[in-house]
């Protein structure tokens, strides 16, 4: 497993921008929220943790490449624990590393995206103990986790206002995603135009080269014939 993380280049997204905003935040401030999330998961998805029992003392580095920090998940005889760490790989040799954009990782957690498909498309990169990775993937995929519903359960049956607030937040996020996509498209449009022109030029050159190649043997053969004394007499 590599110690120096290769996080690739994340695409422009609301998560990336939110990550910039979160940069100055001491990670320890996230801990109460992460502890709450884990106890909620254990309460609402005990079947997931039963499947994870097979993993003794496994630890995972979960690296959302568009955030300025990672998560570590430690499983074992004690209660499973999740905490935030820096991106410098400051976790002591995890059993495995899972790396991808935050939204991909969330969709995998909720079973809305297939892990193999994310791997084939290279949206998800994995390293380390693959048995541990598969056990985690299969346990989580089976669990029917729905982060929004899990969070709303904290508000009990009177969760109407929270549900509405979440709906607004989701709409704002979707809007920000669309807007950023337009910004990205505007930025790359001129570069794409130049690339298209270069590609067309390259194709023309390749055609010319192919043409020259087909003519060359004929020209060479004619030259050789002309150079032969007998041929010269004809």
């Amino acid at each position: 497993m590599t110690n120096e993380p290769n996080r690739g280049t994340p695409s422009l997204s609301p998560v990336l921008l939110a990550g910039f905003a979160l940069r100055p935040l001491p990670l320890v401030l996230l801990q109460p929220a992460l502890d709450l999330a884990m106890s909620l998961m254990r309460r609402r998805h005990s079947d997931v943790f039963e499947r994870l029992d097979a993993l003794e003392n496994a630890s995972f580095l979960i690296d959302p490449v568009d955030l300025p920090f990672c998560f570590t998940l430690r499983l074992g005889p004690a209660a499973p624990r999740l905490w935030a760490v820096g991106t410098g790989g400051d976790m002591e040799s995890p059993s495995a590393v899972l790396r991808g954009p935050l939204l991909v990782l969330i969709r995998l957690l909720e079973g809305r995206m297939d892990g193999d498909a994310a791997f084939f498309s290279r949206d998800l990169a994995v390293e380390g103990d693959m048995e541990a990775v598969l056990t985690l993937r299969n346990a989580v995929d089976s669990g029917g986790i729905d982060l929004a519903e899990d969070l709303l359960s904290l508000f009990g049956p009177m969760n109407g206002p929270a549900r509405r607030a979440l709906g607004v937040a989701e709409a704002l996020f979707a809007r920000a995603e669309r807007d950023l996509e337009s910004v990205r498209a505007a930025f790359v449009a001129s570069v794409e135009g130049r690339c298209d022109a270069q590609t067309a030029r390259l194709r023309d050159l390749e055609d010319d080269l192919a043409d020259l190649r087909t003519r060359m043997p004929r020209a060479n053969a004619a030259g050789k014939r002309a150079a032969k004394p007998g041929a010269a007499r004809l």
Binding site: G111, M113, G115, A117, L134
Partner: peptide, 10 residues
């Protein structure tokens, strides 16, 4: 059988 719910559903 080794694939996720999203694969199966789709």
């Amino acid at each position: 059988r080794q694939r996720g719910r999203a694969y199966i559903a789709e």
